[in-house]
């Protein structure tokens, strides 16, 4: 069962801040899901190969060459950015020093 300490770690790994008022609701719902999927433990899967995908996925290779991007493409992409300046994304500090 997921307890509050483990839930806090899950929320941190998920990069989601959770209001204190919502914590218990999440824990209850997540535990219901854990209970529901525990049924999988009864299946003997010795020597079974896992299925990750339905297709035989292949890598798509391209020449390792730099292609120039047009200004119009850059404009479209950076227009979607919450904060940008001169075709650079603006972010807050990465390290807390």
């Amino acid at each position: 069962m997921i307890k509050k300490c483990e839930f806090n770690n899950i929320a941190f790994l998920s990069r989601i801040y959770v209001n204190e008022q919502e914590v218990n609701k999440y824990i209850t719902d997540l535990n219901k899901m854990v209970t529901a999927v525990n049924i999988l433990q009864e299946v003997n899967t010795d020597n079974v190969i896992p299925t990750t995908h339905m297709t035989s996925m292949r890598n798509i290779w391209r020449q390792d060459t730099v292609k120039s991007s047009t200004n119009s493409v850059k404009k479209i992409l950076f227009n979607n950015a919450p904060e940008a300046e001169n075709c650079f994304y603006k972010i807050r500090k990465v390290l807390n020093i």
């Binding site: 999927v37 999988l40 299946v43 899967t45 079974v48 190969i49 896992p50 299925t51």
Partner: peptide
């Protein structure tokens, strides 16, 4: 997750 992928195969 790994167990589910195996049951998916079954």
């Amino acid at each position: 997750y790994y167990q589910a992928q195996k049951v998916r195969t079954i």
